[in-house]
Design a protein around this nucleic acid. Structure first.
Length: 273
DNA sequence: ACCCAGGGGCAAG
DNA sequence: CTTGCCCATGGG
């Protein structure tokens, strides 16, 4: 294992915050796939011990270059946001592979995180490619999912999400949307393009922009964030809450929300209104 | 038994 | 442009 400098980083917290769902504990370390590469990572203080040869890959995936102190300087100063920052210091927004991120969050609707993980692992085992040294297979390609039967997808626990994932996979596989070219579009255009995919609405599209396209101002509003924002703002419909979040939290609103999300879930608390 | 989960789509007001 | 309801499925 070689060592990468990782100040202001909390690996366990980052992996537990509902961004990725396929990492496995391995002693004091974690084992997972970054794209198709198996990586073992272990945090010891400010040093991240990584599988030799994977230093740059891991540093980029875990976004060790994000300027956390500058990001924290933009955090709101109310008591709940302060508590979230204290509780989540070192949590970073991971740079995920785009298709994997889109497909995983497409299956996330009305599911608890433990089940999102179960669906991801089932899809990988059934339609992905085995990776040497990893118990977890690579995430299935768009073509692999597009070619799967709906019944086989439902057998992975997808339920009503099965036809949506299949149709979106077909669109990606046939070039109906170019996920790489989307990186060059501005955020509103990229959001609109993602929302045209079956099973993808504003919440999931914003997750993909935040976790797959480095749009750190993207604000996915799920049931947890909605509760937090309603307590701060005093009610409001989803569209109003999203606008409130963007206006209040600024250019790192996605980071702020991720901290609020994780803190609300773990502490079972909401802002005092 | 009952409620909820990192929602989306569609029809009806 | 909003609201109501359904869509499967597992966990608390």
């Amino acid at each position: 294992m070689s060592v990468v400098a990782a100040p202001e980083f909390d690996l366990r917290l980052t992996l537990a915050s509902g961004q990725v769902f396929h990492w496995e504990p391995d002693g004091d370390a974690w084992r997972g796939l970054i794209g198709g590469t198996v990586v073992r990572v272990e945090q010891r203080g400010a040093g991240l011990h990584v599988t030799p040869g994977c230093e740059d890959l891991a540093a980029r995936y875990f976004a060790l270059d994000h300027p956390l102190e500058a990001i924290y300087a933009t955090f709101p100063s109310d008591a709940f946001s302060r508590a979230a920052l204290d509780a989540c210091r070192g949590l970073r927004i991971i740079r995920q592979p785009r298709w994997e991120c889109l497909a995983t969050f497409l299956t996330s609707s009305m599911k608890q995180m433990s089940h999102i993980r179960a669906m991801s692992l089932a899809l990988r085992a059934r339609f992905g490619e085995p990776v040497e040294g990893s118990a977890v297979a690579s995430y299935p390609t768009p073509a692999a999912i597009a070619g799967a039967g709906e019944a086989a997808l439902r057998a992975c626990g997808l339920g009503f999400r099965a036809p949506h994932l299949r149709a979106t996979a077909r669109c990606v596989a046939e070039g109906g949307i170019d996920l790489e070219a989307l990186a060059g579009r501005d955020t509103p255009a990229a959001l609109a393009a993602l929302c045209r995919l079956p099973g993808v609405g504003r919440k999931i599209a914003n997750c993909v922009l935040l976790f797959g396209y480095e749009r750190l101002d993207a604000v996915p509003v799920d049931v947890w964030i909605a509760r937090v924002l309603r307590a701060m703002r005093g009610g409001g419909a989803l569209a109003e809450l999203e606008a409130f979040s963007r206006e209040q939290f600024g250019s790192y609103a996605g980071y702020v929300q991720q901290y609020l999300f994780h803190h609300a879930r773990v502490s079972r608390k909401l802002p005092a209104s």
